[in-house]
């Protein structure tokens, strides 16, 4: 995936918030507002909201687990493409490949379905996960927004 941080983008978003569950809705709302100008279809909007919600929830319940940390969302629009990055500085993921296996979860006690990464993959065009134990996790996603014409 292109490094959108160093790209000449039309519009950028930087959002930082506490890893509290009530902020999940806030993250979706801000992301929706950010892409509203691209005139996305209802389906595209739902796709982006779901993917962001999954990544933010992961940061809150896995990244920071029992403590409160900062979740960062960076997003950018370049022509008709949306780039979005959700990052935390939490515990990190030991085995990213295993974490991405559908239905795999480390929190069955919380009734996690293990479908988070599957949904991100299904609803976005590209997904990249970088993680280091003790360093945190960074999820980058890209999606073309065709818009309702």
């Amino acid at each position: 995936m292109e490094d959108f941080m160093n790209m000449d983008c039309e519009k950028r978003l930087l959002l930082e918030f506490d890893s509290k569950s009530e902020n999940e809705g806030f993250a979706r709302m801000m992301t929706s507002a950010f892409i509203a100008g691209m005139d996305p279809t209802l389906e595209e909007l739902a796709d982006v909201k779901t993917a962001v919600s999954e990544a933010v929830t992961n940061a809150i319940i896995h990244g920071y687990r029992d403590r409160t940390g900062t979740v960062t969302i960076r997003a950018a629009i370049h022509s008709r493409e949306l780039f979005v990055e959700i990052s935390d500085t939490g515990v990190g993921i030991e085995d990213v490949c295993q974490a991405m296996v559908p239905l795999y979860t480390t929190r069955p006690d919380m009734e996690r379905s293990g479908m988070g990464f599957s949904f991100m993959e299904a609803f976005m065009d590209e997904l990249e996960v970088h993680s280091g134990v003790g360093e945190g996790t960074r999820v980058r996603m890209k999606k073309k927004i065709s818009g309702g014409k």
Binding site: R28, A46, K49, S53, T57, M110, E111, M115, G116, F119
Partner: peptide, 12 residues
């Protein structure tokens, strides 16, 4: 009109 994988977990 919104649900993510957490919804699947709670229904299951």
């Amino acid at each position: 009109d919104f649900m993510d994988s957490s919804g699947i977990g709670v229904i299951m």
